[in-house]
Amino acid sequence: MSLLKVNNLSYAYSGATPFFNDALKDVSFNIEKGEIIGIIGHTGSGKSTLVQHLNGLLKPNSGEILLENENIWDNPKEIRKVRSKVGLVFQYPEYQLFEETVYKDIAFGPKNMGIADDEIDKCVRDICAIIGVKEEHFNKSPFDLSGGEKRRVAIAGVMAMKPEIIIFDEPTSGLDPKGREDIIEIIKNYREATGATVIIISHNMEDMAVIADKLLVLNKGKLEMFDTVEKIFSNRVKLNSIGLDVPIVTRVFDELIKRGVDVEKDIFTVEKAIESLKKVKAGDSNA
């Protein structure tokens, strides 16, 4: 049984301009429980529009979204329940912080779900332990934290609702390398602890190659491809035709192959590259 099923989803913003035409055209796909999905595509390809459909922030013009086989719009009054099951972390989530203290801000989501106070406390403490928000920060104002820490707290605010599916819209944008690493770590930790399904929008192919199981490629509002990372990255012709790149290490290997060096074809991470080159080296010395 698929966890999330999208059938023939179409959507157009009213009053869209040629510059901002983030429409979706007849998009269908299935997501299984526990998968890590990367969504790639250009700015304006409809990535943000798509993920806002998955938690019911936008209502499709046509088509349906099935969460555990139930159409999320069957009962519009219950749409907020969908939002606690499908968490969405927007780009620059730190811009949504508003409470006096870190603790209160993280508790905002669970509180909106209408659960008991001691339960809320548990949600907050659990999530902070998982992703490393220090208890000594609980009574601080979120606005006194550093940029990276603010983002960690904002992400905790969504995770505290314990969503089964959690979506990140470019979670590392605007951060320095250390900050980016931290965020990737948070996502991994959350998944390990909860087994949640993760969907990440990103422009960073190198990160995608390491994190994602499957990639969903959007182009001009249409679903171009949806497959395993290996299959997507091996289809360079199609990726390049829509102006997307493969990881740099893959491009280095393609260059080597073009020069007639006998290396493996589909290498997407540095780790795999080293393994492959070691084999070539060993093979040479054996010959």
Binding site: D176, E206, I248, V249, V252, A273, I274
Partner: peptide, 20 residues
């Protein structure tokens, strides 16, 4: 100092560490 390098450099650095 908390900076990262382009993947090309990363690749060659790892190769060197692995005896290339």
């Amino acid at each position: 100092v908390g900076l990262d390098v382009p993947q090309t450099t990363e690749l060659l650095y790892s190769l060197k560490k692995n005896g290339f």
